[in-house]
């Protein structure tokens, strides 16, 4: 080891140590988070009459994983009976087409246009039925009962999505996503179709009116300002504690250092 220590005074030694440190941290982090490799891009679609158009898009974009008639394969589930709502949710949030196999499909920019999305959704609906895309009236929040929405949200949603829909961890690298970007339609569709790990909350268990109440509460809460100041992510005491040390205590230490600093000799008699 002495050949290393013999060179420790060289100017490059400092940079090497920092580089090694970065590499070490990065390697450890990458090991415990796990990552996938990038995959191929998707193809754009051409448009015709809706269902036929949808079928075409489906065959080009989705069939490789989901099977030629959406019957499912070893890498993707069957889509027969999932309904237009499921397709609209997955595609409009950009989760589908899936870029890479991962613990969970993340929200990303939409790959298909809204018209194309609707076409594929109608095509899948035609194959086996299932929950349809909710109407505008079903996701309208006017006249909704916010109080009931809060109670329902607390009873059924906060345990995964957190008090304000900031998201939370699930097992094996999955997570309940934050609800900040979800449209009312997407929230409704998620509840009724139960994407990935999310349970299903169908219309006979959580009625459409109750779903509207929940949507009203979610959209109201996320739009609401923070009267107390910067929200620190609204995830609670963890970030508050970090600020208490790195903000408050650090500020106090700086003040203490100033108060007790030795004064320059020229200021003394």
């Amino acid at each position: 080891m002495s050949w290393i220590t013999a060179k420790r005074r060289r100017p490059v030694a400092g940079y090497v140590v920092v580089l090694l440190g970065l590499v070490l941290v990065g390697a450890v982090y990458a090991t415990i988070t796990g990552s996938g490799s990038s995959a191929a891009a998707t193809d754009p679609a051409v448009s015709q009459a809706e269902i036929a158009q949808g079928r075409q898009i489906f065959e080009q974009t989705c069939a490789t994983c989901h099977g030629l008639v959406a019957q499912g394969t070893s890498v993707a589930p069957s889509l027969i009976g999932v309904g237009a709502a499921a397709v609209d949710f997955q595609v409009s949030t950009g989760r589908m087409p899936l870029r890479e196999p991962n613990a969970e499909a993340p929200r990303k920019p939409q790959q298909l246009t809204p018209a194309q999305t609707r076409a594929v959704a109608e095509y899948i609906q035609s194959l086996g039925g299932g929950p349809p895309i909710p109407t505008a009236a079903q996701v309208s929040t006017s006249g909704a009962n916010l109080a009931l929405g809060q109670e329902l949200f607390t009873a059924n949603c906060t345990q995964c999505h957190n008090f304000v829909g900031a998201g939370g961890a699930l097992t094996y690298g999955k997570y309940a996503p934050a609800l900040t970007a979800s449209t009312p339609t997407q929230i409704y569709e998620a509840m009724v179709t139960g994407p990935e790990a999310m349970p299903v909350f169908n219309d006979t268990t959580v009625t459409p009116d109750e779903k509207r109440d929940i949507i009203a509460y979610v959209t109201a809460i996320r739009a609401q300002g923070n009267p107390g100041g910067f929200s620190l992510g609204r995830i609670g005491p963890v970030t508050e504690g970090i600020f208490a040390f790195l903000g408050l205590l650090f500020f106090m230490v700086l003040a203490a250092m100033w108060i007790t600093a030795k004064q320059r000799k020229s200021a003394n008699e």
Partner: peptide, 30 residues
Amino acid sequence: AATFVQINPIWLYGPYTPVGISAGSQPDFY
């Protein structure tokens, strides 16, 4: 800190019920 950084926004948490809970529930840091 009290002016610019929000802490313990209990209105977002809702009243206590033994039926409900939030993801990421934590006590204060100590």
